[in-house]
Design a protein around this nucleic acid. Sequence first.
DNA 1: TTTGGCACTCTCTCTGTACGAGTGCTGATT
DNA 2: AATCAGCACTCGTACAGAGAGAGTGCCAAA
Lengths: 352, 352
Amino acid sequence: MGKHTQLLNERSLQLLKTLVERYISDGQPVGSRALSKDSDLNLSPATIRNVMADLEDLGLVHSPHTSAGRIPTVSGYRLFVDSLLTVQPLNVQELSRLQGTLAAQHDPSNMIGVASRLLADLTQMAGVVTLPRREIVCFRHIEFLPLSHNRVLVIFVTNEQEVHNKIILTAKHFSPAELQQAANYINSMYAGRSLNAVREAVMKDLRDDQERVNQGMLDAISMAQQVFNQNEQKDDYVLAGETNLMGFSELADRDRLKNLFDAFYQKQGVIDLLDQCMKADGVQIFIGEESGYQAFDHCSLVTSSYSVSDEVVGVLGVIGPTRMAYEKIIPYVDITAKLLGAALNPKSTPPL
Amino acid sequence: MGKHTQLLNERSLQLLKTLVERYISDGQPVGSRALSKDSDLNLSPATIRNVMADLEDLGLVHSPHTSAGRIPTVSGYRLFVDSLLTVQPLNVQELSRLQGTLAAQHDPSNMIGVASRLLADLTQMAGVVTLPRREIVCFRHIEFLPLSHNRVLVIFVTNEQEVHNKIILTAKHFSPAELQQAANYINSMYAGRSLNAVREAVMKDLRDDQERVNQGMLDAISMAQQVFNQNEQKDDYVLAGETNLMGFSELADRDRLKNLFDAFYQKQGVIDLLDQCMKADGVQIFIGEESGYQAFDHCSLVTSSYSVSDEVVGVLGVIGPTRMAYEKIIPYVDITAKLLGAALNPKSTPPL
DNA sequence: TTTGGCACTCTCTCTGTACGAGTGCTGATT
DNA sequence: AATCAGCACTCGTACAGAGAGAGTGCCAAA
């Protein structure tokens, strides 16, 4: 694969692997003596020290101070997860528990929350799942309800069962009957198309039909415009188990922890990061500063996109300290993504 | 008021007051020398020490160790906020900023979030606002949409503009037209009544009209029953600025912080606490262990209920370390509650 | 009742020491 | 040429003692 695998011989890689594994399980810098015992290769500490010096030159490990052992750098972890890691197949009973819990939900909206919780509990770190977003959001049904002061409560349903509502202000007052009529009109005109298509159609109709159409339809269309024009893609995610992160000494630092949690609540930065993961399929990993996102500097993010009927609709993943058990986390994330996708899959299209 | 105000003379109270004030601003145990300088009474440190001994006997202050100054106990704080505290009137421009921000929202659902954020920003601690809950929730409108497999998406609107949705399973398959008819029937029968009233009426109709009514109506009523029967009072709150709490040394302890945040996310315990505050009107304060809620042992909670048209509908408040500037926080909470109530007040009832 | 004085206690910080872990390097061994 | 044992060296940590500072409690005098 990378330049390192060519530059380094088998033995060095083997040693790097055991070093990372050891550090992940212990959390202590690992010295040459420990490494000599841990690895199957029968080498003396002195030899190992030579190898370590090489690895250090390549920027794969570093020591916190002169006479401490070595700990992996970001590149070291990267090489480890890319080429050295042996993923652990996961436990059958855990798998069936996962599957069972997800399949038991019949309301997709809390299925996301459940998946997030599962990830968190499974890994004892933070789980994150983005709300499923289809490229083609299908407009299904709209409903207007009058409020006071020319305000109208708009309820509309997209895809199977996603309910949205917003309040719009109308230029003049409409009677309930008029609103009903407008809703009927919009439903008959636009239902079944994608939101983008609806948006365009509305624009077009508003331009073209200015003369031909009667007043009631015009009102309906202009309200439709208000509803659909702003491209409010409510990117969002559900987080769980963030308090699990408080236990890790890497993140014990006040400011780090605060930055991290602030990032969680501000959301935008995290969303951007997750969006990147959506493009690549399969499991995607950001280690430490790789994410380029300050708040995540001491964290790793293991994600996988999930798909409903072969279309990628979201991302889920796990956030934890850089020092995490990748060989376990990766299959967890992978499987959860597949199971969630399957669980979200509508068994068939509704009659309507 | 309490037993203490009678037991203690003016001077002791005065000293307790300055001690608490000093401790709140400094965070250090305050010694007799400092107290002697701070208080206007011209007393020597020695005299002050005698008084402190008395206060300690009464359980109002205590020293962390032999030769540290004194810090207030929970009872000390309690006496302070009940009888000694001089609330600071709040800054006019802050008040108008508050009012402006709240009035600018025209969607009540994010108004709650905004209020919470305001509290957090204002106090640099955590803000919390419960979702408004009226005793009488008025049923307004219902809508059925068919999904696959005899599942039906139910959308219903209560009060002015609260949209709820849930998925129910029906015994047999209904055509869209049948569902439409059922919705029309339910709307005409029950709209305008309180949810409780609807629930009862549905039960009654289901019992009584078994024979008289036609099949369509019967179906409608039995679906209505599914929708309304479970008493899902979705008690919930919106939290903001919880990360502000990470800065306080009192809460720096790992486990404490974790417990606190776990409590925030579990919600139930906090909801119970807030419910208690709803009963008392005016500003309500829990100091440290007073709340009886383990996770809040090192926190204080300053709350006030808020009302829409003279009916208490929710609670808001601020959560911070026991050592907080009560004289500022109290008016903040008080005013915010009043402003939020006013902002939520519907200007008039909608025509419908 | 108030106050100054004094002995005492406790914490915090600094210092020096000893120790252990681990490294880098060198020169001998294979 | 690769490997390894040995050695000097470095760094961090744990521990103990000393000194300073803050503050108390108590007693006796004003």
